[in-house]
Design a protein around this nucleic acid. Structure first.
Lengths: 258, 258
DNA sequence: GTTGAGGTTGACCTCGGGGCAGGGTGGAGG
DNA sequence: CCTCCACCCTGCCCCGAGGTCAACCTCAAC
């Protein structure tokens, strides 16, 4: 007799691949048809009908794992089940759209990973003639700060902005970066630390506002990490920072514990 | 010294799970930090920075496999790479939206798997008092026909509609369904087949229009499958169909070969 | 007889991790 | 000291919806 069609024809009729049909069999969504004398599956109309039903639901986005239940459920539950699937689809769509929006903000120019205000600060640093290496280091510190201490990020930015408006402070910053080429025991390092501490004490706003200081105090581990960033590649700067911090602490400034 | 933070803290800082961090290590997206004396990973700022960068891109929908390349690429390629990812995201979003739309059409009432016109035909069958079992069988045949011979589907529908407008034909259909309770050798079966064939020959439009007939002729395997659907559960109807077809062929009607 | 198309099973791959097993480590409390 | 609890380590299998590769078998045509 050789009743029915082979799997290839059945798959073609319904518009799927042979693999997919076998996959549905393995999941129990479509009954296995009888085999002919040579072991080939022979599909009759009943199996094709199931295949069409499963395919229609799958193409509509119903997860394969839920198709069995949907087909078993009669009328009343059927609509509810489909509505449920639709809700899940909507959620995933919204998530993907949000991702794409984030991506577009990232791709907007090369200013990835940081908001516009931070990019402006970095641009300003470049314009002031600060070393590109220093600017890059600040950029990394900002990226870290934003992720690790989001509550203190705006304060951190404000602190940087204020520093850039202070000509003397900018000069000190420039020298501090140049100090990297000095010997580690150069006596000028101590001098520079003292000058920096004096500047901070003369204008405490350079250390950040109240909210910002509190945020840092609440996250000492993060403060240490960000503050020590690039320490290995800039040992002189590290020593400079330590000396300056010591002086500030001695003057009563409540910096987070090291 | 115990420098740096453990994996759990690092993960919490960045807002991911410990598993995710280790996953990134395995993919080479974040450098493995040094281990302390007990074998624990100790994260410094450099690793955290990488983690933040990777996380930001991943959250924006960049596939992990592409993040390495994106981070390596400088400025110019960076934007292009992100734009590319954005395009892929848009494609997937469109696909999901299309799925959801399909789903909503399906969920609209219990009339799944078939278009409105077909549902109307089935409703009309019910209204005419035809047996629910018969209507269900016709529904399955329509689902199959739509998937297997889309070109002939509208013609098939039209054929059914015309039949429903023919009072005598409806009566014959009703009797044909009742015939299932007869013995397989009941002489009334032959009579009924003759009456059906006569009715078809009296109004050949009941067999479908030209386009429809051509579509069936081009898909004999599908015709056979759909025509023989439920044959196993309705042997009398099967015999009835065969007898009727034989008469029609004898009268010169070009039905597809069995 | 041979060739090419199409059938059979099975095992392994995708992507972004989640979950569990089995065991080690460190600090706090009885 | 012992125990509890939280945290860390590695390694394995799991998810969805199939794709891909391998090795072999069968059918129809030349």
């Amino acid at each position: 007799m050789s009743n029915g069609v082979t799997i290839g024809r059945a798959a073609a009729f319904v518009g799927v691949t042979v693999k997919t049909v076998r996959h549905y069999h393995r999941l129990g969504l479509v009954a296995e048809p009888e085999r002919d004398s040579s072991g080939y599956r022979r599909y009759g109309s009943a199996e094709l009908l199931q295949l069409v039903q499963v395919r229609t639901l799958a193409a509509a986005g119903v997860p394969l794992a839920g198709i069995g239940a949907v087909l078993d459920a009669e009328a009343a539950q059927f609509g509810a089940a489909l509505a449920d699937v639709g809700r899940q689809l909507t959620e995933r769509i919204d998530e993907l759209v949000a991702r794409r929006d984030t991506l577009q903000r990232l791709a907007d120019g090369d200013r990835a990973l940081l908001p516009d205000r931070a990019c402006a600060v970095l641009d300003r640093m470049r314009d002031l003639g600060l070393d590109p290496g220093y600017v890059a280091a600040q950029r990394e510190a900002l990226v870290l700060a934003r992720a690790l201490v989001p509550a203190g990020f705006d304060g951190f930015l404000g602190q940087l902005e204020r520093g850039l408006h202070d000509r003397e402070f900018v000069e000190l910053t420039r020298r501090a970066w140049e100090a990297e080429s000095w010997q580690p025991d150069d006596p000028r390092i101590e001098e520079l630390a003292a000058a920096l501490a004096d500047r901070y004490l003369a204008d405490p706003a350079l250390l950040g506002d109240h909210a910002s200081l509190r945020a840092w105090a609440n996250a000492p581990a993060q403060y240490r990490l960000i503050n020590n960033h690039r320490e290995d590649r800039a040992p002189v700067a590290a020593r400079l920072t330590a000396l300056t911090e010591a002086r500030l602490r001695a003057a009563g400034v409540p910096l987070p514990q090291r």
